[in-house]
Amino acid sequence: MPENTATIPDTPLFDRAGSIRGYRLNKMAMALSQPANRDAFKADEDAYLTRFGLSNEEKAAVKSRDWHEMVRLGGNLFFILKIAAVDPTPITQIGAAQAGMSHEDFLYERLGKKRHG
Rank of each mutant, 00 (worst) to 15 (best):
2 P>D: 10
3 E>L: 14
3 E>P: 02
5 T>A: 10
5 T>P: 15
10 D>F: 15
10 D>K: 13
11 T>H: 13
11 T>L: 14
13 L>N: 14
14 F>N: 11
15 D>H: 12
17 A>F: 11
18 G>E: 07
18 G>V: 09
18 G>W: 08
20 I>L: 11
20 I>Q: 12
21 R>D: 02
22 G>F: 02
25 L>Y: 04
26 N>M: 04
28 M>N: 05
31 A>H: 00
35 P>C: 04
37 N>G: 07
38 R>A: 12
38 R>D: 04
43 A>Q: 13
43 A>G: 07
46 D>M: 03
47 A>Q: 10
48 Y>K: 01
49 L>Y: 02
50 T>A: 14
50 T>D: 15
52 F>N: 05
53 G>S: 08
56 N>L: 05
58 E>H: 03
61 A>S: 05
63 K>H: 01
65 R>V: 05
66 D>W: 02
67 W>K: 01
69 E>S: 06
69 E>P: 01
71 V>F: 04
75 G>Q: 06
75 G>A: 04
78 F>A: 13
80 I>A: 02
81 L>M: 15
81 L>H: 14
81 L>R: 11
87 D>V: 10
88 P>S: 09
88 P>R: 10
90 P>Q: 13
91 I>K: 06
91 I>S: 13
91 I>P: 06
92 T>P: 01
92 T>H: 15
92 T>S: 12
96 A>P: 07
97 A>W: 01
98 Q>V: 10
104 E>Q: 12
107 L>A: 03
107 L>M: 14
109 E>S: 11
110 R>M: 13
110 R>V: 03
114 K>Y: 05
114 K>G: 09
115 R>Q: 11
117 G>E: 15
